Amino acid sequence: MMEDIVDDVDRKLISLFAAEPRVGVLEASRRLGVARGTVQARLDKLSSSGVITGWGPDLSPDALGFGVTAFLTLEISQSAGHERVADQLAGIPEVLEAYTITGAGDLWCRVVSRSNADLQRVIDTVLAIEGVQRASTVMALATQVPFRVLPLLEASTTTP
């Protein structure tokens, strides 16, 4: 449970690095009023436990020229296997994420493309994967709430 993994110092540390990713361990220790070794040990613990999953820069597909976002619900043949299809999806740069789902369809993918016409190429590439039988596509018109996880950190301080 997150309460067992993340305490108040960890929350402050994560919030600081989320707001200012380039702050550095020494400056973080100064701002939080804890020893540099404590900051480093906490960051190491949070990384090794999987709470912090990455340190790289967040990239904007739009700024890279991929301004169209769509969501594909894929139906796959039962003999194809989710992992085999997912391995092929991972080879398509425009596939940003893929999940096995319940309900209508078997896999859900978020994809990007350079244009609406280019989206057809991406869909055709996905449909060419052995085992993918059908794709249902929904295009995103505007981002209302971008992907975020930080609010969960704050929510973890309250008990239901």
Rank of each mutant, 00 (worst) to 15 (best):
R30S: 14
A19T: 10
Q88T: 03
V85C: 00
M139S: 11
T73K: 10
E94Q: 15
E97V: 11
S113P: 12
D4Q: 11
V132F: 02
R11Q: 01
T157K: 09
I92M: 02
M1N: 10
Q78T: 05
L153K: 02
V95K: 08
T137E: 05
S136F: 07
M139Y: 09
A80W: 07
V149K: 06
L153N: 03
V51M: 00
L107S: 03
V34E: 08
E97M: 03
D58Y: 13
V34D: 07
D58P: 00
D8R: 01
T159V: 14
G50K: 04
L152H: 09
Q120E: 15
I92D: 05
R30N: 15
A18S: 14
S113D: 07
S60Y: 15
L107D: 00
P160L: 10
S115C: 04
Q133S: 15
E20P: 03
P160N: 05
M1Y: 04
L64A: 14
T158A: 11
V23W: 02
R36P: 01
Q88M: 06
M1A: 10
D44V: 06
V126R: 02
R36E: 09
R31F: 03
Q78P: 04
W55E: 04
D8A: 05
G131D: 07
F147L: 11
S49N: 06
L127C: 09
R11K: 08
R30Y: 00
G131N: 07
D7Y: 12
G37P: 08
L32P: 01
L26D: 09
D106N: 13
R11E: 01
R22Q: 13
S79T: 10
V34K: 09
A128Y: 07
E83N: 14
A19V: 09
I52N: 02
Q78W: 06
T157L: 12
P160C: 01
G103K: 14
D87Q: 06
A63N: 08
T53F: 05
L72G: 05
Q120W: 09
V126I: 12
G131L: 12
T73A: 08
T159F: 00
A63G: 05
L59G: 03
A135R: 03
L96R: 13
R84S: 13
R30P: 09
E27S: 13
V111C: 09
V112W: 10
